[in-house]
């Protein structure tokens, strides 16, 4: 599989699952809350970049306090714990089979839909009406998150595609190959039409 970031293939859940599987350890370690250290590092880095670029959004999210979300891309073997505010804000990947940390709410949708939602390219209520987005738990927290994110101008390609620090890259390359390319690829792939990707995972 080519990882040339200049020529991303159309977003495919299968491809993304494959990518995620490469980033994550080959076998989830039962009982460990977080997936592999590089995945964790990448997630946190993406989160930190978004936080720097979109300060007003995170100011709006301060009202969430310690409330965290379990973000569950239904087509990936990984979930994420997202805590936008509070004493320890961040984004942590959690491999399937791991113990789930407590979260105020769960958001479950195909990855493409979640990314489109993050970028405001699709309306959350529309996803909900068609059951592509499943929500459980604290609805107020979900609405705060959704409305703040929708009001922001998040563009993953622009916001994430800066070069990664050399130290991380060196470590990651040794273990997993071209991580920077992976991040670029995922960012670019997120821009494929969401309807196409969603259609692929529908039964």
């Amino acid at each position: 599989m080519s990882l040339d970031p200049t020529d991303p293939p159309p977003l495919s859940p299968v491809l993304l699952a494959g990518l995620a599987a490469r980033v994550l350890p080959p076998l989830p370690l039962l009982g460990r809350p977080l997936a592999g250290p590089v995945a964790a590092r990448l997630s946190q880095m993406a989160f930190d970049r978004l936080r720097r670029r979109h300060e007003p959004v995170f100011q709006r999210l301060a009202v969430l306090g310690e409330r965290a979300f379990l973000v569950d891309p239904s087509d990936l073997p990984v979930r994420f714990l997202l805590r936008p505010a509070g004493t320890r804000p961040g984004l942590w990947p959690i491999a399937d089979g791991s113990t789930l940390p407590p979260a105020a709410a769960t958001l479950r949708a195909p990855l493409a839909a979640l990314l489109a939602l993050l970028e405001g390219r699709v309306d959350g209520d529309s996803l909900f009406f068609s059951r592509q987005l499943m929500i459980e738990g604290d609805m107020e927290a979900v609405l705060i998150l959704r409305n703040a994110v929708d009001g922001a101008d998040i563009a993953l390609e622009r916001d994430l595609a800066a070069r990664l620090p050399r130290r991380v890259l060196t470590m990651a390359r040794r273990w997993y190959g071209d991580v920077d390319g992976l991040l670029h690829l995922m960012a670019r792939a997120a821009h494929q039409p969401v309807a196409l990707a969603v259609a692929e995972v529908q039964p």
Binding site: R121, D123, S126, D150
Partner: peptide, 10 residues
């Protein structure tokens, strides 16, 4: 007014 900007645009 509770909908996302994608809804509004469309």
């Amino acid at each position: 007014r509770q909908r996302g900007r994608a809804y509004v645009a469309r």
